[in-house]
Nucleic acid binder design. Sequence first.
RNA 1: GCGCGCGUAGCUCAGUUGGUUAGAGCGCGUCGCUGAUAACGACGAGGUCCCCGGUUCGAAUCCAGGCGCGCGCACCA
Length: 1161
Amino acid sequence: MTDLTMFHAVKQDTKFPQLEEQVLAFWKQNNIYQRSLDLRKNGKPFVFFEGPPTANGLPHPGHCLTRAIKDLFPRYRTMRGYLCERKAGWDTHGLPVEVEVCKELGIHGKEEIESYGIEGFVQKCQQSVWRYMQEWERVTERLGFWIDLSQAYVTYHQSYIESVWWSLKTLFDKGLLYRGHKIVWWWAQGGTALSSGEVGQGYRQVADPSVYVRFPLEGEPNTSLVVWTTTPWTLPSNQFAAVNPELEYAYCFDETSSETIVIAKALVESLSEKTKRKLAIVKVVVGSELVGKFYVPPFDCYSKQLGHAEARLKSGGSQRPCWRVVAANFVTIDSGTGLVHLAPAFGEVDYEVLTEERLRFVEPSVPPLLCAVGPNGKFTADFPSHEGVWVKDADKTLQRFLKDAGKLWHQEQYLHDYPFCWRASEDPLIQYPRESWFIRTTKFRDSMLENNKTIGWLPEHIGPGRFGNFLESNVDWALSRERYWGTPLPIWVCDQTSQMEAIGCYEELIAKPGVQGTEVWANAKKANPELEDDLRVHKPYIDAVTYDSPYAPGARMRRVTEVIDCWYDSGAMPFAQWGYPHKNAESFNSQFPSDFISEAIDQTRGWFYSQLAISTMLFGASDEDTKNGKIAERAYPHPFKNCIVLGLMLAEWYESKDGKQRFLTEEEAKTACGTDYVVKTGKMSKQLRNYRSPQEIFDKYGADALRWYLFYNQAPWNSILYSERAIRDSISEFILRLWNSVSFFSIYAEIDGFAGPSEIASGLDQLTSEELSRAKSYRPIEQRSELDRWMMSELAATCRDVVERMDRYDSYGACQTLHAFVDAMSNWYIRRSRSRYWAADKQSADKLDAYWTLYESFVVVAKLIAPFTPFLAESLWKLLKGDLAGVRDSVHLCDFPDGGAIAPDAELNARMSLLREIASLGRSARMDSKLKVRQPLQRVEVSLADDSQIQWLRKHDDIVREELNVDEIHYASGASPFVEYQVQPNFRRLGPKVGPLLPKLKQQLGSVSGATLLEELTANGKITLVLDGKSIELDCEDIQVRMQAKAGWAAAQGKLCVVALNTELTDALIRRGIAKDAIRLVQDLRKKRDCNFTDRIEIWILDAPVAMREALEENQVFICTETLGVSIHFDNPPSDLELDDCELGDSKVRIGLRVTTASLA
RNA sequence: GCGCGCGUAGCUCAGUUGGUUAGAGCGCGUCGCUGAUAACGACGAGGUCCCCGGUUCGAAUCCAGGCGCGCGCACCA
């Protein structure tokens, strides 16, 4: 062995966050990420897509989970030899950005934006996008998420937008983009539609008027339909009344008002009660009989204009188009009257009814859409009495108006949930018809389903379940947004003929004949050279660009005003990140589709859908094409093959009982409230601020602690609690346990000057077995002790298992395996090997084996954990490689160990686990008899279920003897005085054979002595039983033997064996027990006195009774060997010797020690 | 209302094609061990496997119904 000191004892007070900062600096300085890619330049690609986060808010703990998983698999695959490029990306468009800017400018709504100026506003948006960028980059980096931030794709960049344009042009040219009406949730004050997600956020319980209105039937005097509504302001725009054709309706005589009303029969009683009116049923009809009747609308604003004018029907003849009873299946008797007022302008289902009605008429826009409300939410001139009044303010006067006109049958208050604007919480939303652009995704429904079937979803149920169901109910994608900051819809319209063209890129646009308007951008740029060139394809600059219409001489082509849904941006990412097809076709082709993506479950209808839909439309085949036998351009699945769908992250916090104070840690809660606090868990919320920022976690516990917590504690698709305590625990459960093992190794390697790897002169690279085996002191595994062989075998099994699991994206299972291995290494291998490391002969083969085995295990573990806890792995690697020449700088540049070099020895692993069980049972038996392990015992008896392992176990007596502190160990199978046997049927085997007889069989087996049955079985190889007159033969496979420790013995039973102790204590045993106790006291004192590990000492033990003193003298050599003592004195301590009072056995003694240079006698 | 998921120890979660003694970690309690010590080991207490039916020789597991929670969709006229 060389004299070089290769290893230095690891400091005891390791601060992991600090260590991680060092690792980060190391990675940066040495360009490790880039080098990890360069190394795999010729590797098979493993394609990863980054779902672009919006950098328009602070990253929260939930993002850490996503980013940790996104990091894990690319790191793993890279180490497995794949080339995994990781291009970052940012989602930069959309309403949230506009809202931020509005806040900053202190403005509200579209009118104010327009008066501020679209140009300045859009510029502000572009600048604002990067507001939180640094924070995002910092968290990304600190978490150890390796991704190329410098080459990030950005959705507002010109090249990105041009890719999106290309895709939209492609869809347009295929006739898949169209203009249509849609009833949307409309924020009138802001002048914009809200997405369903935004609407969902704003629901609030409010009391609205609930009115029951008479619709007098034409030709039936004094008879009215009674309809119910909670939005009186929609009544002026009423067009139909709907009934369920299947339901029964009753004509009732209302005694109170002496009139006949029509309502659902099932509701007569409850309405009578509610309104305190006497209702007598006159006749009953089914809904379909009411269909086709005409009524007088509640307000005459439109009936005055349209009167009784009739329109031509397709079926011949003509009919008045409005104020007619129609059939609709959605009508129920859950609330109201069973008759529904329809105002198609203000309800999606109402609008559908209009669309259906229109099919009956010759003219396509008959019946017309009646809408007395403007986009600003105020009544228009169509309803002169309320022109300019905000609809919600009109509710009261409208009710009075109805009452005065005798139309109001009943009124009350109604409590229900109603959506308000999520950012202007006083503004109620209204449903409102808007013209929108749609993509005909419904033509690809089946193709999307086909594509989906081939995707590897984790968990699996997402595919056919949530995602599949969502695809089943596909509706055309409402693409356009009447906003400012977004990808402009690239459609130009002829101002005379309304003919349209889609444009695929900027160059194509400016090459058009007679282009004008490009100077608007040029001038802006001249005025402010700082402007990013990407802005030229944005509003308002792009809107200014017009060209000659090919459709009419002298006409101009002008862009439509809309921008597009930013979900389309992100869904276009697979090709748009490269600017494809305008450039980088190669990159696109090699990076499509992706092997792996991961986001949280909320992306089901978001990014997962937008990607799949766009990809299927562009690179797949439509349903019709598929039916005609045309195959998709690219084989499914695309654009992603595997997707881990993460659960949502929940917050845990503490609240005072009155809910007024919130705390993030229990200590804070205790300090402030004593015991008057409660633990809460729930969604993370910015408003509640109920979570700790990731940065605080990094600073306190480190990124690895967080990462390990996220990976190890549950399958990633379960929702996970962001619990600070649990994150902290992951340090001691895994990180510290491993680190302590390394620390142990380093302490003794330093003391002994173990420097095995430095014996290898050259050719070191990744410290593989093959490389290490070239060291002189490295013995082949086969020549080492069983314990070493076991460790290496477990290691190989661990490698294989981890690889197998990670290859199928089972990170959770892989972590369980890693954890179990570290536990086995720390709690069995090292524990059982400790004495080997402090053996005196530094050159003994056994000692060197022990070092080598541990060293190699650490090397492999460092590689195994590298994708999971990259910082810890790197620190470990650094320690293991020391100054060895040629070894790779970083563990992340190594190959992932697949266990191929060493074959796991399943039998050995099973045997060792039996041995561990015996030791564990022995300790349990000791516990029961209150015999502490320090007290030596004479003998243990081990009874085994079968005798096949006895030979092997006998060879390892030393391990068990030492673990259990006994002198002898005796193995047996079969009859023994402290074990009884229970024979049970092997249910799995016999179930199918004997079926219903099984309970009786069990009973019969139980009633006979187990030992007798076993003897019979051993003698004949079978036993025969008679059950219900049937004779049944059982062989040894058909039964299972269970051993039970007999009462009265110091014994413990496990699945495979029973361990019994001989509890008799002889004087000699007691004396050795005293010596063991003394050893421990001396060791404690060594530590207390800060002795070095190698210090020799003189020991004084005073006041020991005679018998004890004899016991100590008798075991003097033993005590000295264990404690590095040179001598033990029982009197005459030096006058300055510090003495500690201790309890030894039943006596009080004083113990002192002194470091000496004398050597052992 | 519909769909998907979940419901197992005080907490966080495992639990294989159904197999008869349901596990782990944390926490709690007791004891032990101590040249890894801001560790470690053992043992214990703690379970209506959400409820109710059914299938089966046998159900935490399969089926039907219900309850609760989460997410999504629709509706809220």
